[in-house]
Deep mutational scan, measured.
Amino acid sequence: MQIFVKTLTGKTITLEVEPSDTIENVKAKIQDKEGIPPDQQRLIFNGKQLEDGRTLSDYNIQKDSTLHLVLR
């Protein structure tokens, strides 16, 4: 499925993911596309910070959902 990740600069990254993917996996995909190390990434969905060990389906993230990427 496709999800979107919006950065603070207003750029939107499109990712191909599975609901069973962990947040860690998603961060690795963002690193592949953008070169941002996962330990600098914080992903936010519906105002909640997403934890590495959880999956997209844990957070009820579905296709065409938009996550927000904050760098630390």
Rank of each mutant, 00 (worst) to 15 (best):
V70P: 01
Q31Y: 10
D32Q: 14
T66K: 08
Q41I: 06
F4H: 03
G35I: 04
T55P: 11
K11Q: 15
K63H: 12
V17Q: 11
D39L: 11
L69G: 01
T12D: 05
Q41V: 13
G35Q: 08
I44Y: 07
K63F: 10
R72G: 15
P37W: 12
D21F: 12
A28P: 04
T14K: 05
S57M: 05
G10Y: 03
D58G: 03
T55D: 14
Y59I: 09
T14F: 10
Q2A: 11
T22P: 10
L15M: 03
N25S: 12
T66F: 13
L50W: 01
V26S: 04
H68M: 03
P19H: 05
K63T: 03
V17M: 11
K6L: 07
D21L: 04
N46E: 15
V70F: 14
D21T: 10
E51Q: 09
D64S: 11
G10A: 11
A28Q: 08
Q40A: 14
E34W: 03
L43S: 00
K33H: 14
S57N: 15
V70A: 10
P38W: 10
V5N: 00
T55L: 04
T7N: 10
L56F: 13
F4W: 13
N46L: 04
L69W: 08
T14Y: 04
V5K: 00
D52N: 03
Q31T: 06
G10E: 12
K63P: 13
N60Y: 08
T14A: 09
D52Y: 03
Q40E: 06
T9S: 12
R54Q: 07
S20I: 11
T9N: 03
I36E: 04
G53D: 11
Q31A: 09
I13W: 02
F4T: 03
Q62N: 11
K48Q: 07
M1F: 12
I61V: 15
K11M: 10
K48R: 07
F4D: 10
D39E: 03
K27L: 06
N60F: 03
T55V: 06
R54Y: 15
D21G: 09
G47N: 03
Y59N: 04
I13D: 01
D64K: 07
F45D: 07
I44G: 02
K11E: 02
D64I: 14
I23Y: 05
I13Q: 05
E18P: 12
V26A: 13
L43W: 02
G47A: 11
T55I: 02
R54G: 09
L71Q: 05
P38G: 15
I36P: 13
L69F: 02
D32I: 03
T14N: 07
F4Q: 03
Q62E: 04
I44Q: 15
L71W: 10
I61D: 00
S20Q: 15
I23D: 01
V5Q: 00
L15P: 00
E24Y: 02
Y59V: 15
G53Q: 10
T22V: 13
R42L: 15
Y59R: 01
L71K: 14
K48W: 06
G35T: 08
K11H: 11
D52P: 08
I23M: 02
G47K: 12
L69K: 00
F45Y: 13
T55M: 13
V26L: 14
E16D: 09
K11A: 03
P19I: 09
G35Y: 02
Q62W: 12
T66Q: 07
G10T: 13
I61M: 02
T66S: 07
D64Y: 03
Q40T: 12
E18W: 08
L69I: 07
T55S: 09
P38N: 08
K27E: 02
I3V: 10
T22S: 04
I3E: 00
R72L: 03
K33S: 08
Q2M: 13
I44F: 06
I3P: 00
K29N: 05
N60D: 06
I36R: 04
L43D: 00
E51H: 05
T14I: 03
H68N: 04
E24T: 11
L8V: 05
S57P: 11
T14D: 10
T14H: 04
T12K: 12
I36H: 03
L15F: 12
F45R: 08
K29F: 05
K6F: 06
K11T: 15
L56V: 10
H68S: 14
Q31E: 14
D52M: 05
E24F: 08
Q31N: 06
Q62K: 06
P37E: 10
S20M: 05
E18K: 15
L56E: 00
S57V: 03
G10D: 14
I30T: 06
M1V: 15
I44M: 15
K6H: 07
N60M: 13
D39Y: 12
T14P: 15
I13T: 08
D52G: 07
E34N: 13
L8I: 11
I44E: 05
A28K: 11
T55N: 15
S20R: 15
K33T: 03
E18I: 09
L15S: 01
N46I: 07
A28L: 15
E18D: 08
E16G: 14
E16F: 11
G35M: 08
Q41M: 15
K48A: 09
N46K: 03
L43A: 01
R54H: 13
V5H: 00
I30W: 01
R72A: 11
I3G: 00
D39S: 15
Q49D: 14
N46Y: 07
T7L: 14
I13H: 14
L67N: 01
H68E: 11
L8H: 03
T55H: 12
D52K: 10
I61F: 13
D64Q: 04
L71D: 13
E34A: 10
K6D: 06
L15V: 09
T66G: 05
K48T: 05
E18F: 11
M1W: 13
T66I: 11
D32S: 07
F4S: 02
Q49A: 11
G10K: 12
I13Y: 08
E51L: 05
L71N: 12
Y59W: 10
E51A: 14
Q31L: 13
V26M: 11
M1H: 07
S57D: 12
D52A: 08
I13N: 08
R42K: 13
V70D: 04
F4M: 11
I44D: 12
T55F: 11
D52W: 04
K6R: 14
I3N: 00
G35D: 04
N25P: 02
E16S: 15
R42I: 14
T7H: 04
V70R: 02
P38H: 08
Q40L: 12
K63I: 11
G35R: 13
L8T: 14
E34H: 09
F45P: 00
A28H: 11
S57E: 08
I3D: 00
L67V: 04
Q2S: 10
E16Q: 09
G53L: 05
I13K: 02
T22K: 15
Q2G: 05
L69R: 01
D58M: 10
D32M: 12
D58I: 15
T7E: 05
G47L: 11
E18A: 10
R72S: 10
G53Y: 08
N25T: 02
P19D: 12
L67T: 01
L50H: 00
T12N: 08
I44S: 02
P38D: 03
T14V: 12
K27D: 00
M1P: 02
I36G: 09
I30F: 14
Q49T: 14
G35H: 14
I23P: 10
